[in-house]
Design a protein around this nucleic acid. Structure first.
Length: 950
RNA sequence: GCGGGGUUUGCCAAGCUGGCCAAAGGCGCAGGACUUAAGAUCCUGUCUCGCAGGAGUUCGCGGGUUCGAAUCCCGUACCCCGCACCA
């Protein structure tokens, strides 16, 4: 072994050996299998610290399970389907300055290489090579015989088979759905295509169809229930409206609204322009209540929001109340309105705690809103909306809806209104404008004849929930998150026109959307090995997959059909039967609401229950020096960079030991440096132990030897338990840092002969985390074969030595107490005398423990019992004081301190105490205190000897 | 807004099935040992006060339950993640 720790040499050496000796290439055998998968990375950049975390957790678990004796399969592949890679290749080809900067500076790609990546194929090839090299450089125990890319032809066949099944199950259906759309590019826009307004969401407004004769005046609202309280409509007199044909009706809407309608799934035709002024003063009919209401002018009406026509509910909408109030003293004769607007009665329809009949009026007064142009009007609206939404209940005048909570009414009412032809849905951005990167203002487009995965299907959902119920979710708190998301999931468009991917087998114009092609691919790993080995793949019909994965058919038939040798077909089939289902999938928490959910959906759809996944573990992200990492804006730390700068083992150790579960790891340079120092200390200590021939494992065990072995068992037990539940940080705390401290104490106490025993277990326990350095140490004399394949240490109950631990505890506490006294007195000791507790106090403690019931101890009863004991009675004067103390501590009394012969222990370790304290030490029992100038021996209690310092 | 997670001693971070918690571990900082010196390593200390091992005040903020709360309940503020057709 190397004299000094050198990550580079050690890591390169062992990575080469692992590969050459095929250490991590499992085949089915009689052992229990463990199939672990991690979402494959998308190939539009280099792997970064976030990937590093997820993958390293997975690798540590894989290595742990392997050492526990499982036959572990840990494969990896690459994701390339979808649009980003295509977009990226165009940007690179055009030498887009932004992309150029990101990829040269953040991803660290040399300019000459980057300039060659001008097609999707070259990008895929390049990043695939990079990613694999990166994963190898950090020492993942991946079976690389099974790697693939989602654009491989055989993979496409597999996806086609899967979608064939989904189609047969009627889970793939056609429908329409709204998307953000750039009219210039004629394409849906994604988040990264948006210049401004990426936070805008698509909201569905109700379009309530008020009528003026045969003409419809649609009012857009988020609160359809308030239609019961409409007392007038608002139009902006300064806005031009248009009379348009919409399907087979005539609508009046603002010009802006008309434009938006053209992108919906309605047939629209432009009619006559008509000014707002012309309409004001006319009346319209409320479709639901049949009442006639007047159209009034209002400046707050925005033609670019909704239809440009607003229904007025002054009892519940501050703007409506304000606008109406503003008109009370205005001359409206130019609109032909002569009626006294004060006679318009408000209609109250929502009951909410804290408000009376007219909440809008109350809140306007409360916030002292002046008029409709006052900015506070907006606050009042939001506040009231929130309160009524959460606490409001519909009143009697809403008929069949009376008593319904406002928060529950929208969908129900809207559906009813639509059914009766009184309303339609109108989509609008939550904030405007939304601007595409090309500078064009985006609209909401209804995509027609789109293929959907029907995730809303209640039976499908029920199966997913059943699957979840049978799964282990780590951390357990995320189970409810998963369940909520299943509930929330709606139908998902599953096909696109652009990008890389597999065509829908029955509709070749469409490509299967990339999240939909990465749901059950774990099954494909069993097959990929044979594809990579040169299996004939020209003809892989659904029957082939049916046999492999579903056990439908037989190998001979399939062989004939595909031209693949029968034995191979049978073997793939048997491999799958052995490895499936997925035992654990670990992933970043960002995939919970999408990929992980789809992973479950598709598994329950395609596979029988026994092949459903067993467990999901979710982990958090990685930040850099407290800053969120960003692939496009920086800062970014790539996997390769981390390894190049710090070594694989240090990178692994840091990222696994720094945070747990869904918390974020903060990558900090000082922390990484100290991790490096720790690992080096570990190496040096191990080296020294390995070189020390004076160690005699079979020598009689001293107190510290027994203590050390006892602690080791506890550390092993803790680390094992932690790894079983994928808590790498907890495991490392125990297996590395705390055990390190134990060893320090052991050596300080003069322990030596068990160092080899400890080291053997220690190296094995560290192997999943820092595999390279452990191989190096293992090979230097700890055992045969590979540390990576050695048996994970098992905690030996019989070596747990409570007595030894207590004795060491006593010594440590002793030293701490002496230290504290010295600190306080600032004295320089010449001699220290220790007095262990007298027999009567021990007896009394026992009485107290016996008498303490339910955490309570009766002083009187204790004294009575004590006085009956002659040994205690002899100390009549001191006994009550001690009894009082015991009574006070009644809830935490324990006889533990009685289990150790303190006098004997201290006597035996007297030499050590003298060395540690640097002065002569004398030890007495308080029963036989000898010279006791300050009477200190009286303070001695069980578990806490008295101290006298001179 | 909805759903999930979080707020601990200078920093990171355990604890959170109530007492053994002034609260693990690491980092940082301070002192000491070693060394010609530096580094590394080891030891000690690191909320406040204290000339005998003690006492006091802490675990976002405000209340409550309890003999007893960082840990349970209620309220409140702030932070992070997701909210889709995009990987």
């Amino acid at each position: 072994m190397l004299e000094n720790y050198s990550a580079k040499e050690i890591e390169a050496k062992w990575q080469k050996i692992w590969e050459e000796k095929a250490v991590f290439q499992p085949e089915p055998d009689s052992r229990k299998k463990f199939f672990l998968t991690i979402p494959y990375p998308y190939l539009n950049g280099n792997l970064h610290a976030g990937h590093t975390r997820t993958f390293t957790i997975g690798d540590a678990v894989a290595r742990f399970k392997r050492m526990k004796g499982d036959n572990v399969l840990f494969p990896m592949a690459f994701h390339a389907t979808g649009t980003p890679i295509v977009g990226l290749s165009e940007l690179i080809a055009n030498k887009d300055p932004l992309i150029w900067g990101v990829y040269t500076k953040l991803h660290g790609i040399p300019e000459e290489e980057l300039s060659t990546l001008n097609t999707p194929e070259k990008i895929v090839l390049y990043f695939r090579r990079q990613a694999k090299a990166a994963m190898q450089s950090i020492g993942y125990s991946i079976d690389w015989r099974r790697e693939f890319t989602t654009t491989d032809p055989a993979y496409s066949k597999f996806i086609e088979w899967q979608y064939g099944i989904l189609r047969k199950l009627d889970y793939v259906v056609k429908g329409s759905h709204p998307v953000r759309w750039c009219p210039h590019d004629r394409n849906p826009v994604e988040d990264h295509d948006i210049l401004k307004g990426e936070d805008a969401t698509i909201m569905d407004f109700a379009l309530i169809k008020f009528r003026m004769g045969d003409t419809v005046l649609p009012c857009a609202t988020l609160r359809p229930e308030t239609v019961f309280g409409v007392v007038n409509l608002w139009l902006n007199p300064d806005v031009n409206y248009v009379e348009a044909r919409v399907n087979d009706e005539t609508w009046i809407v603002s010009k802006e609204a008309y434009e938006k309608l053209t992108f919906t799934d309605r047939q629209v035709a432009w009619g006559a322009e008509i000014s707002g002024k012309q309409l004001i003063g006319k009346t319209v009919t409320n479709p639901l209540t049949g009442t006639e209401v007047l159209i009034l002018p209002a400046g707050f009406v925005d033609p670019d929001n909704g239809s440009g026509i607003v229904m007025s509910v002054p009892a519940h909408a501050p703007y409506d109340y304000l606008a109406l109030k503003d008109l009370y003293d205005t001359d409206l004769s130019e609109y032909g309105i002569t009626a006294d607007l004060r006679k318009i009665g408000f209609i109250s329809l929502i009951e909410s705690p804290g408000y009376g009949e007219l909440p809008a009026v109350e809140i306007v007064n409360e916030l002292k809103v002046k008029d409709q142009n006052d900015p506070k009007a907006e606050d009042a609206t939001k506040l009231l909306y929130r309160r009524e939404f959460h606490n409001g209940v519909l009143k009697a005048n809403t008929g069949q809806y009376a008593g319904t909570a406002v928060s529950k009414i929208k969908d129900v009412l809207l559906a009813d209104l639509i059914e009766q032809g009184m309303a339609e849905v109108f989509y609008e951005f939550s904030e405007t404008p939304v601007i595409c990167r090309c500078g064009t203002r985006c609209v909401i487009m209804m995509v027609r004849d789109q293929w959907f995965l029907e995730y809303s299907d209640p039976e499908w959902k029920a199966r997913v929930l059943k699957c979840l119920a049978g799964m282990q979710i780590i951390p357990e708190e995320f189970r409810v998150e998963f369940e909520n998301k299943v509930d929330w999931l709606k139908d998902k468009a599953c096909a696109r026109r652009k990008g890389l991917g597999t065509h829908l087998p029955w509709d070749k114009e469409w490509l299967i959307e990339s999240l939909g092609d990465s749901t059950i691919y774990m099954a494909y790993y069993t097959l990929a090995k044979y594809v990579n080995a040169g299996m004939k793949i020209d003809n892989l019909p659904p029957e082939f997959f049916e046999f492999i994965f579903m056990n439908n058919g037989n190998a001979a038939e399939i062989a004939k059909l595909t031209g693949i040798p029968q034995e191979t077909v049978q073997q793939i089939h048997d491999d799958f039967a052995y490895w499936y289902p997925v035992d654990l999938r670990t992933s970043g928490k960002d995939l919970v609401a999408n990929h992980l959910l789809f992973f479950l959906y598709h598994h329950v759809a395609v596979f029988p229950e026994r092949l459903w996944p067993k467990a999901i573990a979710v982990n958090g992200f990685v930040s850099l020096e407290g800053k969120k990492m960003s692939k496009s804006k920086g800062p970014l730390l790539t996997l390769r960079q981390a390894v190049a700068e710090n070594g694989a083992d240090v990178t692994r150790l840091y990222i696994l030991g720094n945070a747990e579960g869904t918390q974020d790891v903060d990558w900090r340079n000082d922390g990484v440096q100290s991790t490096h120092a720790h690992l080096e200390r570990f190496y040096n200590l191990a080296r020294d132990v390995l070189a020390d021939d004076s160690i005699d494992e079979n020598a009689p065990k001293t107190l510290v030897d027994r203590w050390m072995l006892s602690r080791l068992q506890r550390r092993i037990a803790e680390a094992t338990e932690a790894m079983e539940s994928i808590q790498t940080r907890r495991a490392l705390q125990s297996a590395f840092y705390l055990l390190f401290n134990d060893l320090r104490w052991y050596q300080r106490r003069g322990g030596k002969n068990q160092l080899g025993v400890v080291l053997s277990a220690w190296v094995r326990m560290m192997s999943p985390f820092t595999p390279h350095v452990c191989e190096e140490l293992w090979a230097a004399g700890l055992g045969e074969g590979y540390a990576s394949l050695a048996a994970w240490p098992k905690a030996d109950e019989s070596l747990i030595d409570v007595q030894a631990e207590k004795a060491e505890d006593l010594l440590e506490k002793m030293l701490n107490d002496v230290q504290e006294i010295l600190n306080v007195t600032k004295a320089t000791p010449k001699k220290i005398t220790l007095y262990t507790a007298p027999a009567w106090k021990k007896e009394m403690l026992q009485l107290a423990v016996d008498g303490a019931a339910g955490g309570k101890l009766d002083m009187g009863a204790l004294m009575k019992a004590a006085m009956a004991a002659p040994a205690i009675a002899a100390h009549k004067k001191d006994a009550p004081k001690y009894a009082q103390k015991l009574a006070k501590a009644a809830h935490s009394l324990s006889a533990e301190a009685l289990g150790l012969d303190e006098y004997e222990t201290l006597g035996r370790e007297k030499d050590y105490l003298q060395t540690a304290l640097g002065v002569p030490v004398e030890i007495f029992s308080a029963d036989d205190a000898g010279e006791d100038p300050k009477g200190k021996s009286k303070q001695a209690e069980p578990g806490r000897p008295a101290i006298y310092i001179e």
